[in-house]
C-alpha cells in the first residue's frame, strides 16, 4: 500500500515557486522501485511477452472474420437478450431498494443508529465482486438468471445507495428547514425539501448503474448466473475465437448504444 500513498504535500506547490519537494520525490522513487520489484516477482519477462505476441497473432487470426452463422447468431441473440433482461431487472429492483437504504444511510436525515446500520449493510454489499456474489447465489438459488439478477441487485444497492447517501448528505439544510417550518410532515419534507435537491443526481446514478449492470450481466454467466456469459465462456473454452469476437463486438455495440441513451435520459431529468 506504500506506493499509491505518494504525495501528502500541497498540490498547488508547483504553481508557487517550484521548490523541490523531497517527500514527493521519495514517493515517486518508491513507486518505481515497487513496480520493478513486482514485475520481477510476477515473472514478467521479455521472452514471455515475445512468445505472447506470437500467440496473439494466432489468436487474432482465428478471431477473424467474426462468426456470423445463423445458428450461432441465434444463440448469441438469446444470450444477449437474457443479459439485458438481467441488467434491467437488477437495476429496477436494486435502484428501488437503494432509495430507502441510501436515505437511511444519510447522516443528516436519519437517526444515528439507523444510519450506521445502513452504512454497515452497504459496506458488506460492496465488498464482493458481483461474480463472487453470483457464485454464492448460484449455490443458494441454483443455476440461471435468478442468481445473476440477485448478484447484480446486491452490487447495485452497494453502489447506488452509497453514492445516493453522499448526495443526500450534501443537500442544503436550509431548504429542508424552510419546508419543515411550514408544518409539513416527514414525507412532505422529503418530497419538497429533499428530493428536488437530489433527484437529478439519483436518476444519473440509476442510469449509470444500468450501464454498469449491463457490463456485469455479460459476466455472471461464467459462473452460472445466466446471460451471454455462458455461451461466451463455452466458445472460449472450445477455442471458437471467431464466435468470441462476434459476442464481444455485439457487447461493445450495445454498451455504446446504452451510453448514448443514458446521456439523453440524464438531460431529460436535469
Amino acid at each position: 500500500m506504500t506506493a499509491s500513498a505518494a504525495p501528502n504535500a500541497p498540490s498547488n506547490m508547483a504553481a508557487a515557486a517550484f521548490p523541490p519537494n523531497w517527500p514527493k520525490r521519495f514517493a515517486w522513487a518508491a513507486l518505481t522501485i515497487y513496480a520493478v520489484y513486482a514485475i520481477s516477482v510476477l515473472d514478467i519477462d521479455f521472452e514471455r511477452i515475445v512468445r505472447g505476441m506470437d500467440n496473439a497473432r494466432r489468436l487474432f487470426a482465428r478471431m477473424f472474420p467474426p462468426n456470423l452463422q445463423a445458428d450461432k447468431l441465434a444463440l448469441i441473440r438469446d444470450g444477449m437478450i437474457e443479459s439485458i433482461q438481467i441488467a434491467i431487472l437488477a437495476t429496477f429492483v436494486g435502484v428501488a431498494l437503494s432509495m430507502p437504504i441510501g436515505l437511511a444511510a444519510a447522516r443528516n436525515l436519519s437517526p444515528v443508529g439507523l444510519a450506521w446500520a445502513a452504512r454497515g449493510l452497504i459496506a458488506i454489499l460492496r465488498s464482493f465482486h458481483p461474480v463472487i456474489v453470483a457464485i454464492l447465489f448460484v449455490k443458494a438459488v441454483g443455476f440461471g438468471v435468478l442468481a445473476g439478477i440477485l448478484a447484480l441487485v446486491v452490487s447495485t444497492i452497494g453502489f447506488v445507495s452509497k453514492l445516493f447517501a453522499e448526495v443526500v448528505e450534501e443537500i442544503s439544510a436550509k431548504q429542508v428547514e424552510a419546508v419543515r417550518a411550514t408544518g409539513a410532515g416527514f414525507g412532505h419534507v422529503l418530497m419538497f425539501g429533499v428530493f428536488p435537491q437530489v433527484m437529478a443526481r439519483f436518476v444519473g446514478l440509476a442510469v449509470y448503474q444500468l450501464d454498469s449492470n449491463l457490463r456485469n450481466s455479460t459476466m455472471v454467466g461464467i459462473v452460472g448466473g445466466g446471460g451471454i456469459g455462458a455461451p461466451l465462456f463455452t466458445a472460449y473454452q472450445r477455442f471458437d475465437y471467431d464466435v468470441v469476437l462476434t459476442i464481444l463486438l455485439i457487447i461493445i455495440g450495445i454498451i455504446m448504444l446504452m451510453e448514448v441513451v443514458s446521456s439523453r435520459v440524464r438531460q431529460i431529468f436535469q
Binding site: 442544503s172 436550509k174 431548504q175 428547514e177 424552510a178 419546508v179 411550514t182 408544518g183 409539513a184 410532515g185 414525507g187 412532505h188 418530497m191 419538497f192 425539501g193 428536488p196 435537491q197 433527484m199 437529478a200
Partner: peptide, 22 residues
C-alpha cells in the same frame, strides 16, 4: 431558503404542504 430546484409556484405552494395529502 427556497428549494432551489423547484419552481416559484412550487415554492409558494410549499406553504400548503401541511394540509395536502402526500
Amino acid at each position: 431558503n427556497l428549494v432551489e430546484r423547484l419552481t416559484v409556484m412550487e415554492n409558494i405552494l410549499t406553504g400548503r404542504l401541511g394540509y395536502v395529502p402526500l
